[in-house]
Amino acid sequence: MSLHLDWLAAHMQHSDRYAAWIHQQFHYEYADQPLAQWQREFAEGQSNGEWSCLIAMDGERLLGGAALARNDLTDRADLGPWLACVFVDPEARGRGLAEQLIEGICEAAKQRGVSRLYLHTQDKHDYYGKRGWQLLEGFQAWEKQQWLMVRDL
């Protein structure tokens, strides 16, 4: 396996597929947004800074990614930037890929002068808690319990 991480902006042929993975994985967040519309927004986000996505590839095969997002929670526009869109292809899980991608986003944010990153998760707060993220608060969204977390870089 020749694993490498790079910005999606340099591999836009993978943008629609990755956006589709996110749309499916977090379907409750996109219930009101058609896939094609999200794919356009996500693709534009690679150049306008809204959804800067770091992807993992094995050769040219897309394995997963994570994004540095300007705003990932409409009700909390006061917070940001965000770690968002973390996803690894089920066939590529169990190798620490998500952790590499998350650390890559944290490092990129730090290099851009960001001192604090936020995320929200429905069921992975224990996972993030073990990796240096602190629980800020619980909240309800999309008719589900969610967790707002923060990490100082």
Rank of each mutant, 00 (worst) to 15 (best):
R40N: 11
A67P: 08
A69I: 12
Q39K: 07
A56M: 13
G65Q: 01
D75R: 13
S47H: 04
L73I: 00
D72K: 00
L54A: 10
Q39N: 06
C53T: 11
R61T: 15
L79E: 04
Q39T: 05
G80R: 09
C53Y: 07
R61D: 06
A67D: 05
E60S: 08
G49W: 01
C53A: 14
D58I: 14
A77C: 15
Q46N: 01
E44M: 15
L63K: 09
R76E: 01
L54M: 08
E60G: 10
A69M: 10
M57N: 03
T74V: 13
G59E: 09
A66F: 03
W38E: 06
R61Y: 09
W82P: 01
G49A: 02
E50G: 02
E60Q: 03
A69C: 14
G45P: 03
N48M: 10
N71S: 09
G80A: 05
C53N: 01
W82N: 05
I55R: 03
Q37G: 06
W51K: 14
A56E: 07
L73Q: 08
N71W: 09
R61F: 07
A77V: 14
R40E: 11
R40L: 13
L54W: 10
D72Y: 05
Q39S: 06
W82M: 01
G59L: 11
N71L: 12
R70T: 00
T74C: 07
C53P: 04
D72V: 03
F42Y: 03
Q39D: 11
A43C: 09
L62M: 07
C53E: 02
L73R: 00
I55M: 14
D58T: 09
L73D: 01
G64Y: 13
Q46D: 01
R76Q: 02
W82D: 12
G49L: 06
L63T: 12
N71Q: 05
I55W: 11
L62E: 10
G65A: 09
N71T: 03
D78A: 10
Q46H: 05
D78P: 10
D58W: 08
W38N: 00
E41G: 10
A66D: 02
G80W: 00
G64H: 04
